[in-house]
């Protein structure tokens, strides 16, 4: 069954959608969409680094993403105008990464596969990466769920309950770096943030509790992954962007119909 590329693609898409769902909820609640962007973009630098020093690509991506996440998290507390700063950092990381890869011109590398994803070329080893990485992300989120929720609601409430919101934020940063590494193959660097934000945003109008939102985001994200793949197959469009388009469609439908279905 795993020999069929469409089956592997579907398993990869659903795996990423499930892993991204709870994390994506926090991205929406904490308004960190740009942090997701910056973390994802930093992975191009990781790829360049791996090429330059002949390191394995996956760990290099995780390290670069984690470094970016930690840098941004540290700067967040220092009273900078984060919106502008993140705009600068995120795009600089992407541009510098692309330039570095180009400078290493003796290396042949299909950069498009990293930028836009290559879900139809997912191999069995990639599936292992995605599902193990996804399980790790879920484990972190389940383990830290309550503490993260309180920290997100109000840092002072967290302190009063003996929770250190700064430490919880680091867990989130770690999960984010893992998510980038896991999702690259599926939607590509440029659209990872979309896969985090859109299913969570689509789930919002259908639910009444944080947990329900995470579960609902996982379901809607999986539907978008499968729908996007089917669409890409039929219309011969690029698979990663098709998945994000499908997610956007789901967002439109729930956004319009949600308030009528459920009056919270």
């Amino acid at each position: 069954m795993l020999d069929d590329f469409m089956v592997r693609a579907a398993l990869a898409g659903v795996g990423v959608a499930i892993a991204a769902a709870p994390l994506g909820c926090f991205v929406v609640w904490r308004r960190m969409a740009y942090l997701g962007e910056a973390t994802a973009h930093a992975s191009v630098l990781g790829i360049a680094l791996a090429l330059a020093f002949s390191l394995p690509i996956l760990p290099a991506i995780i390290v670069a993403a984690l470094t970016m996440g930690l840098t941004v998290t540290l700067l967040r507390g220092k009273g900078f105008a984060m919106d502008t700063l993140l705009g600068v950092i995120a795009h600089t990381a992407l541009a510098a990464g692309l330039v570095s890869v180009a400078l290493l011109s003796d290396v042949r590398l299909d950069l498009d596969a990293f930028l836009f994803g290559d879900i139809l070329a997912v191999a069995k080893t990639d599936l292992v990466t995605i599902w193990v990485g996804g399980a790790l992300i879920l484990a972190v989120m389940v383990q830290r769920w309550s503490a993260l929720l309180v920290s997100t609601l109000n840092p002072d409430l967290a302190y009063a309950s003996g929770i250190d919101p700064k430490r919880e934020e680091l867990w989130l940063t770690l999960a984010m770096a893992l998510a980038v590494a896991v999702a690259i193959k599926v939607v590509g660097i440029l659209l990872i943030a979309a896969l985090l934000v859109i299913p969570a945003a689509a789930a919002r109008s259908l639910v009444r509790t944080p947990e329900a939102m995470a579960v609902c985001a996982a379901i809607l994200g999986s539907l978008a992954a499968l729908g996007g793949l089917a669409g890409a197959y039929m219309a011969d469009t690029p698979a990663g962007p098709s998945i994000v388009c499908a997610a956007a469609l789901v967002f439109l439908v729930t956004g319009v119909s949600g308030p009528y279905l459920y009056r919270n």
Binding site: L153, L157, T209
Partner: peptide, 11 residues
Amino acid sequence: KLALDAALPMT
């Protein structure tokens, strides 16, 4: 004061 983000569903 506790500003609850509307994006966070919470009973």
